[in-house]
Measured scan of single mutants.
Amino acid sequence: HMTFVALYDYVASGETDLSFKKGERLQIVNNTEGDWALAHSLTTGRTGYIPSNYVAPSD
């Protein structure tokens, strides 16, 4: 899985969403939902949907 870094803070709007903080590292599990991606946080160990425009690929 590619690793991504959060560009902004995001507060989950539902139970299936994943909250994260700017700078948090995430792995995209499934990116077939258009503007949303299923992601796993390497920081918190949690998995949920995130807005895909809130993250960018990290080196």
Rank of each mutant, 00 (worst) to 15 (best):
K22A: 11
L38S: 01
G34Y: 06
F20G: 01
Y49K: 07
S41K: 01
Y54H: 07
A6Y: 01
E33W: 13
G23D: 04
R25D: 03
N53G: 12
T16E: 11
E15Q: 10
T43M: 07
E24R: 00
R46Q: 09
D9N: 06
E24C: 03
T32W: 15
D9F: 03
T16G: 14
A6W: 01
W36S: 03
T16S: 13
R46P: 00
R25N: 06
T16M: 13
S52Y: 15
H1Q: 12
L18C: 05
Y54N: 03
D9R: 01
S19K: 04
F20C: 05
A56H: 08
P57F: 12
G14P: 02
F20E: 00
K22H: 04
L38W: 14
A12W: 03
L18T: 05
P51H: 04
L26N: 00
H1S: 12
E33I: 12
Y49R: 10
A56M: 11
V55E: 03
A39S: 01
E24L: 01
E24M: 02
W36Y: 08
V11N: 10
A39C: 03
N30A: 14
T32N: 10
S41D: 03
L7M: 09
Y49V: 06
S19P: 05
F20K: 00
W36V: 06
S52Q: 09
Q27H: 12
S58T: 11
I50Q: 00
V55P: 04
T47S: 10
E24Q: 02
E33G: 14
W36A: 03
L38R: 04
Y8H: 08
G23S: 02
G14T: 11
D9E: 06
N31A: 12
R25F: 14
G34T: 08
D59P: 13
Q27E: 10
V29R: 08
G48I: 01
G23P: 00
G45F: 05
P51M: 05
A56G: 10
S58M: 15
S58C: 15
G45K: 06
E24T: 01
V5R: 04
Q27F: 13
N31K: 12
D17S: 09
N30G: 15
P51I: 03
A12K: 05
A37V: 15
N30L: 13
P57W: 13
A39N: 00
I28R: 02
G23K: 01
K22R: 10
M2G: 09
L7F: 04
G14A: 12
L18W: 03
A39K: 00
R25I: 15
V5Q: 04
D35A: 13
G23Y: 05
V29T: 07
K21W: 05
P57V: 11
V5K: 04
D35N: 11
S19T: 09
S52K: 15
V29N: 06
M2A: 10
R25S: 08
A39Q: 01
V5Y: 09
Y54I: 07
S58L: 15
G48C: 03
L18Y: 04
M2N: 10
D59A: 12
A56W: 10
L42F: 07
S58V: 15
T43E: 12
V29A: 08
H1F: 14
V11I: 11
S19Q: 05
D9K: 02
F20D: 00
V55H: 04
N53A: 13
G23F: 04
S13I: 14
G34F: 06
E24V: 01
E15A: 11
A12E: 04
V29C: 15
V55W: 07
H40A: 07
Y49Q: 05
T16R: 14
G23L: 03
N30E: 12
T44R: 02
G14R: 15
V55K: 04
K21T: 09
G45T: 02
V55R: 04
K22T: 06
I28E: 00
H40L: 14
L26C: 02
E24N: 01
N30V: 11
K22M: 07
P51A: 02
D17M: 14
I28Q: 01
M2K: 12
T3D: 07
A37P: 09
H1M: 13
Y8Q: 08
Q27T: 11
N31G: 14
P51K: 05
V29G: 05
E24S: 01
V29M: 13
R46A: 07
G34R: 07
T16V: 08
K22E: 05
F20L: 06
V11D: 10
L26M: 08
A6Q: 00
G14S: 12
T43N: 08
H1P: 13
V29H: 15
L26I: 10
N30D: 13
G45P: 01
V5H: 04
T44D: 03
R25G: 03
G34W: 06
L42I: 08
A56N: 08
P51Y: 03
D17V: 07
L42H: 05
G23E: 02
P51G: 01
T32M: 13
S19C: 05
V29I: 15
V11K: 09
Y49L: 10
D59F: 13
N53M: 11
M2I: 12
L42T: 05
I28A: 02
Y54T: 05
S13V: 15
E15R: 09
T16K: 13
Q27W: 14
I28T: 02
I50L: 03
W36E: 02
G48R: 01
S41G: 01
T3V: 15
I50T: 00
G48K: 01
T43D: 15
I50V: 10
A56C: 12
E33V: 12
T44A: 02
G23I: 01
T44C: 03
T16C: 15
Y10W: 08
L38M: 09
N53I: 10
T47W: 14
G14Y: 09
S41M: 02
L7G: 04
K22S: 06
Y10N: 02
S58W: 15
Y8P: 00
V11M: 09
A39E: 00
N53P: 06
G14L: 08
L42Q: 06
K21Q: 10
E15K: 11
E24F: 02
E15L: 11
I50E: 00
G48Q: 01
Q27A: 09
I28N: 00
N30M: 14
N53K: 13
A39L: 01
D59N: 11
S41A: 02
T43Q: 08
P51D: 04
G23Q: 01
Y8I: 06
N30R: 12
V11Q: 11
A12R: 05
